[in-house]
Structure formats: C-alpha cells, structure tokens
Amino acid sequence: MELKVNITSPLKGRLEAVLFSSDEPLRLERLQSIFEVDLPQLKDALQELLIDYAQPGRGVVLQEIAGGFQIRTRSEYAPWIVKLNRNRTTRLSKAATETLAIIAYRQPVTRAELEYLRGVDSGGIVRTLMDRQLVKIVGKKDVPGRPLLYGTSRHFLEFFGLKDLSELPNLHEFADPDEVSLPLEMDFDGDGSS
C-alpha cells in the first residue's frame, strides 16, 4: 500500500483560523480577498476542511450557510452548550413557524395573501417575525393600495442552517385541482359515508 503523505498548503490552516474567528458566514469573495489566492485553490482548501470536519467524533462542522461558510457546532452537542450559555432562546411558536414557512415558500407575499392561506389574522405574528429579523419587507406589490411584500431575510437562512432557499423542505405535491375531477354527488346523509 502506498502511503501518501499529504503536504497541505498553509492555506488550509489559515482558512480554518479565519473561519473559526468569524461570527458570521464568510463568502468566497471575502475569503479570496483575505488570502489573495485563486478561486480553485481556495475551493480545494475549503473542500479539505469540509472533509476534515465531516469526520466522526468532531464537535463542529463546516457548513455552507446563506451563501457563505461558517463553523457551527453539531446539533447533538446542544445540551452541553445550553448548560454553558444558560440564556434560553425563545422558541418559535407553532403559528409563527407556520407563518414563516408560508412566507418562505411564497415570497414575496402580502399580508392579505398570507392571511388567506392561513385563514387567520397574521399581523401580530408577522411583526414578531420581523422583530426577530427572520422576515423583512422586500417591496410593495403593484396593485391598488400598494400593500407591503414580505420575504425571508438572510438571518432566516442562518437560523435554519440553509445554504439558500432551495434547501427548504420539499413541499408535498398534490395533484393539480384542475386535473382531479371533483365528484358532484350530493351528500346529505350527514355521516360522510356515501
């Protein structure tokens, strides 16, 4: 067996140090300007680090988040970090998660559209989500009244650890209602069985 001694470039260590010390995901362009190297070289070093951190037994991972790279702790070690930090973060309520999901999938979306989809008034929840920086105003819809359009923020991606919006969970596809024939038999018996 050939033993391959892998002499890695000093870039890998530098990269690790910079990523470790950063408090936000770092984009490729930013890293490139810090190290002044070619993109392929940078990507190789990143790849090596990604593999290193993917090894079992590590406490942190290197992840692509919101278009950048960030070192994050592994979720299985959360209980110990919680002990360290003590300050508990408030969980998102069921209603807030639901509203956030609709905004994420349907953005840009107006409050009226949101409320039609949810069937309930959502003003308070939208404000909470904006306060938590998960949702932001992205513009105004070009319809009478010019209602505000809402979308998810960069922090939303960081919050759920997403590379971009394409990493949202896939929605269950239902058949196009136009293709499904809706049975028209009347049902008056009241027990639902026909």
Binding site: I81, E158, F159, P169
Partner: peptide, 29 residues
C-alpha cells in the same frame, strides 16, 4: 383548494421545525 394548500404549508412548517435551529441545536461564535 385552500385546504390542500394549507396542508402543504403546514407540513412544510412541520419539517422546517425539525431542522436544527440556531441557538437551539446549533451554535456559532
């Protein structure tokens, strides 16, 4: 139509809820 759409988003939200969340499961500097 509304029910189907609502169900889709509800399921999406349930899945999203299971994602590791920042400062709940995952921590950064």
């Amino acid at each position: 139509q509304r029910l189907l759409e609502y169900r889709r988003y509800k399921e999406g939200a349930q899945q999203l809820e299971e994602y590791p969340q920042l400062n709940r499961e995952v921590f950064v500097r």
